[in-house]
Design a protein around this nucleic acid. Structure first.
Lengths: 132, 132
DNA sequence: GATAGCAGTATCCCAAAGGATACTAGTATC
DNA sequence: GATACTAGTATCCTTTGGGATACTGCTATC
């Protein structure tokens, strides 16, 4: 596996690539980051609305995830001076930069699952043949 | 964020996409999967060699990770009947299917880190201006 | 004045990931 | 017969991610 476009393959470029990948995996990883982003993809939502739509998330975790997403500039937090105050979370333009990555991950994930299913079937029919 | 190429945006396609992404994140996630694959990218290695090159991994964890990578068909385990037996781990052809995903992740990770650094600098100079 | 809704916090708890350390079985060398 | 090398296992421990439950401060309504 060469994960660089040029022909270089030094220890530095590799570990730099590895830490960049780790960074990327970190900011979209975990149980709730993607579900939250996907919920917000259908439009801005308030805290309680998010909590209801995500069904099983607890406020503590939701709060923490929203803070991290905001730090990474994927979402924007807007406080409306209503009574009581309402807080709206919305996707930033920057969040669209994830598209390519997510599409690659999705496509690869689909293909991989199919591949594993196929090789499972293959090993099962092998077993059947062996039993005969 | 629309993570599909067509114009459809139903609940099913979304949650399917989400679980495909989760699958993908799972098989390359964790602390050691990528470092192991990258080490093997420079050529096949035996168990002990891997352990030395990864420096701080314990045999228990290495063993577990290798098993999972083998299950996912990223690596191949070959036992050589030497004395004592040596076991060689090598990348499979299938492991190259990760290339595109990893390149996207790496590029995005690089860009994201730079972006965060830039916005950190910006907020610092804002503070300086405010202090004047 | 009690209740209900808002956006969260605080505290305690559990399970999973990973680490530390010691150990296994087999054989060749000293 | 002790030592060292191979590829791992076994047991115990710590850290981390996340969950359960209760609570806060604020205000509008009943």
């Amino acid at each position: 596996m060469q994960i660089h476009t040029e022909g270089v393959h030094s220890k530095e470029t590799c570990s730099q690539a590895a830490s960049a990948i780790r960074d990327a995996l970190y900011v979209i990883g975990g149980k709730w980051k993607l579900p939250i982003l996907m919920t917000l993809a259908s439009g801005p939502q308030r805290f309680r609305e998010l909590q209801k739509m995500l069904e099983t998330i607890t406020p503590k975790v939701l709060s923490k995830e929203l803070k991290e997403l905001e730090l990474n500039e994927f979402i924007k937090r807007t406080v409306h001076p209503t009574t009581p105050v309402t807080v709206e979370y919305s996707l930033t333009h920057y969040s669209t930069s994830l598209q390519k990555v997510l599409i690659e991950l999705r496509d690869w994930g689909f293909a991989h699952r199919q591949r594993l299913r196929a090789s499972l079937r293959a090993s099962k029919s092998e077993q059947v043949l062996e039993e005969k």
